[in-house]
Structure formats: C-alpha cells, structure tokens
Simulated assay, not measured.
Amino acid sequence: MNLLNLKSLPHLIPALSLLVVSLGAPALADDEAIDVTEGGETIVLLQDNSLDNWAIHVDPRTEPYSPESKAEGIFTVKDGLLEVTGERFACLTTKEAYKNYHLVLEFKWGEKKWAPRADVIRDSGILMHCVGPDKIWTTSIECQIQEGDCGDFFMVGGTTLTVDGETKTGGRFIKSPDTEKPNGEWNTIEVICDGDRIVNIVNGTVVNDGTGASVTAGRIALQSEGAEVFYRNVILKPIAR
C-alpha cells in the first residue's frame, strides 16, 4: 500500500467522579517507546491465553451501571480471542509504549449491551499514543470502534490532529466511507502510525488520514463502553516504506 497516495463523542464523565481501579504498570515516558519499524519485527500484542502484556483499568462505581454488571472479568482471553463484556467503562492498555507501527486487529460485535448504554449503538475503541496517568479515557488519539462510525478520529484529552487541512484540538473527524460489516461478522481494522501521521483503514479501505498529531508515541488501549465486543489477531507490524 502506497501511503503517499492515501487520501457520540466519547462518554464524558466529570473529572471528580472518574475514580479508576488500576491494575498494572505505571505510564511509560515517550522516550521509552518501542519503535516497531526500526526494530523490524512483528509484535503479537494479544497472546493465546494471557493478558500479561496489558494493564486493566475499571470504573469502580456502582451507578449508573446495570445492577447485574460487575467490575471483574470484563476482559478475558482464551485461545487468542479477547472477550470484552462491556459491563463497565474500562480499558485494556499495553504496558509498553510504541511508535511507528502498523496496527492490525479484527473485531466483531457481541449481543449484550449494558446500562447506561443499553439503548444506544454499540461502542468500543482503540486509543493510540496513550500518555500521562493511566485512566479510562487516557490522553490519546482514538480510532473509533462504534456501530456506523468505525474509523472516526477522536482527539481525547486535548490532543490535536489535522485532517483535510482542518486542525482540531479535541473533538472528532468523521470517517468516509462507511465500510463496517454487519453485526456478527469480523471486521479488520488497521491503524498506521508513522511519526505524526495516523491513517485509519477499515476492511481494506482508507477512511481517515490525519497529520500533525500532537502525540506520536505511547501505549495502546482497547475500550469497554457498554457493549460486548470480541477482538483477535492483535499485532503491530513494521510500516512498509
């Protein structure tokens, strides 16, 4: 693929109520990030039966969640298949920081949805270049995983990006076209992070292309936001240049 030729906001919770349970390593500085392209090797982020490479962060509150929801077991992996129950707002974050990579993963929606989003479209997401303190919506740039919106950019925590000549600090850039498959089918998401450029690819089609990213290295997170979702084959490849 020749990149030179490529052409809902997250649920906001007041800062005082964002109490987070954090299990895992503290945030890593950007200068510690692994340069995947310089290293030249593919990195398998999701192991067959282990989440040892990841840290889990869960909102411990009871409200506004369903009475049936629980804070344990939101992220489980078996035979390389990650199940995200969606019962609480949470994120699964790599313990290592990365830069200059081609992220590839597959996802499909499950059937379950939970309060407070039981009656809205299914939502998850990939947070790239997570920096600063570990929390559910860490400062980062998101490739949205949401029904009908896969491939949108969200600039989380005041990050900045430019798409088609427009620069935004915070906010959203809507993808085009919509290439998500019907519920129950596997989708392939690719995110190419090359310096300050980020390209979102959904099922083989470029749907968003941003430059001038204010963050260019950091950890990677997968979100739990009220909907059951499955992930598999989560890898980082060197960028083909």
Rank of each mutant, 00 (worst) to 15 (best):
C91D: 15
C91N: 15
L92E: 00
L92G: 01
T93D: 08
T93N: 09
T94D: 09
T94H: 04
T94C: 10
K95V: 13
K95Y: 10
E96H: 12
A97P: 06
Y98F: 15
Y98V: 13
Y98I: 09
K99W: 05
K99A: 06
K99H: 07
K99Q: 13
K99F: 08
Y101H: 05
L103K: 00
L103C: 01
V104A: 10
L105V: 00
E106W: 03
E106H: 07
F107T: 06
F107A: 06
F107L: 09
G110E: 02
E111A: 14
K112D: 09
K112W: 05
K112E: 14
V120M: 00
I121T: 15
I121S: 14
D123N: 14
S124Y: 06
G125D: 10
I126S: 01
L127F: 13
L127I: 04
C130H: 05
V131D: 05
G132L: 11
D134Y: 12
W137N: 13
W137T: 14
W137R: 10
T138E: 07
T139M: 15
S140M: 08
S140Q: 08
I141A: 04
E142M: 03
E142I: 05
I145R: 05
E147H: 05
E147T: 14
G148P: 09
G148H: 11
G148W: 11
D149T: 12
D149P: 00
C150M: 15
D152E: 15
F153H: 04
F153C: 05
F154A: 14
M155S: 05
M155Y: 00
V156E: 11
G157F: 09
G158Y: 00
G158W: 02
G158T: 01
G158K: 01
T160K: 13
T162M: 03
D164E: 07
D164P: 00
G165P: 11
G165C: 09
G165I: 09
E166R: 02
K168R: 14
K168T: 03
T169N: 05
T169R: 07
G170R: 03
G171W: 02
F173S: 02
F173G: 06
F173K: 06
F173Y: 10
F173D: 05
I174K: 15
S176T: 13
P177F: 09
T179P: 02
E180Q: 15
K181L: 15
P182I: 07
P182Y: 06
P182C: 04
